[in-house]
């Protein structure tokens, strides 16, 4: 187990470094930030001074050296746009994003698991058809459009929930519902497929032959074996939401999430901030994947960490 963790952490380090390197190269190729930061009529001298100030006049390798040296000390430099530590700016929307994504994931699981199980129990029944169609719909509907429609109906017409912003629980409802629709669709389909697979297994007949109630057979026997697939898919969906899939929803509902921060940082060509955000997201994703890996033995005792 200790060896496994050590190996995994080393691999994670490689992944995070790789991502950082890639982002470093990509930022340098999206254009010159000096153009964005100075007014149109700025003189050549002013431009040269800013370029020097930002360290962009150094050779690319030297810039990379500075960057790596900084990251090694946990220093991503100062955000050009926000005038404060890039890491601090990058971390600020993270709790909100994680909370919103978490609520959305729980919401989708609460519906996806029973729906997927019921569909698998009665394949090709009316319920199964309705569930399949609506989960396909959930996958296909653009979430910004869905968000707007929900605002139109539940805020403007019914006045049940606020249109945008943050605050009490009412503010969470529409964004998390909007966000939950896609994972709900995908996880329902995964649960259905995984359960169909398990319910065909012979050990299910054995469980029934013992006189177990059908609810036990399905939840204790089949669902546990389907767990690996469901957890993997759920973790993947959560990772995607944290990595900025929330952008459109943040825009629609006016929320301070990590998605809108990325967009702004790119718009401002704020290299240190872009690098800090991607670093933070990469750490989150890697950590999430380790958690998923560690959960596998709960469902499959054959999984051993070496």
């Amino acid at each position: 187990m200790a060896t496994y963790l050590l190996k995994t952490l080393l691999k994670a380090l490689v992944v995070v470094l790789g991502v950082s390197l890639l982002v470093f190269v990509l930022t340098r190729s999206i254009g010159n930030p000096v153009n964005t930061m100075l007014p149109l009529g700025a003189s050549t001298a002013e431009r040269a001074r800013l370029t020097h100030q930002l360290g962009l006049d150094k050779p690319l390798l030297a810039q990379l050296g500075d960057y790596v040296a900084g990251v090694a000390q946990g220093n991503f430099g100062e955000s050009w746009w926000q005038q404060e530590s890039a890491l601090t700016v990058a971390l600020r929307p993270l709790p909100f994003t994680i909370e919103l994504s978490g609520i959305a994931l729980v919401l989708s699981l609460v519906f996806a698991i029973p729906l997927g199980i019921l569909s698998a129990l009665k394949p090709r029944s009316l319920l199964d058809k309705v569930a399949s169609t609506s989960s396909m719909l959930g996958i296909c509907v653009p979430n910004f459009w869905l968000g707007l429609m929900l605002i139109l109906i539940f805020s403007n017409l019914l006045h049940w929930f606020p249109t945008s912003g943050t605050g009490g629980w009412q503010y969470w409802v529409l964004p998390s519902v909007t966000l939950a629709v896609l994972p709900l669709g995908r996880i329902t389909q995964i649960v259905r497929t995984a359960m169909l697979e398990q319910l065909r297994e012979l050990y299910i007949v054995t469980a029934r032959s013992k006189g177990l109630p059908e609810f036990w057979v399905v939840t204790r026997h089949a669902l546990k074996n389907a767990g690996v697939q469901i957890v993997t898919m759920s973790g993947w969906e959560l990772g995607r939401m944290i990595a900025g899939y929330t952008i459109a929803i943040e825009a629609v509902f006016g929320l301070p999430g990590i998605g809108s921060l990325i967009v702004d940082a790119i718009g401002q060509q704020d290299f240190p901030l872009i690098q800090a955000i991607t670093f933070v997201i990469a750490i989150c994703i890697v950590f999430l994947n380790i958690l998923i890996d560690l959960s596998y033995p709960l469902f499959n005792p054959r999984v051993k960490f070496k």
Binding site: E201, L212, P301
Partner: peptide, 26 residues
């Protein structure tokens, strides 16, 4: 009523021992 009979009054052993036990439980 059938469930009370299964496993108690009438029980069954299957052909495939490799797949007739649940892999996730002892």
């Amino acid at each position: 009523e059938m469930r009370l009979i299964r496993g108690k009054d009438i029980s069954m052993v299957f052909q495939e021992p490799m797949s007739s036990l649940n892999p996730a439980y002892t």
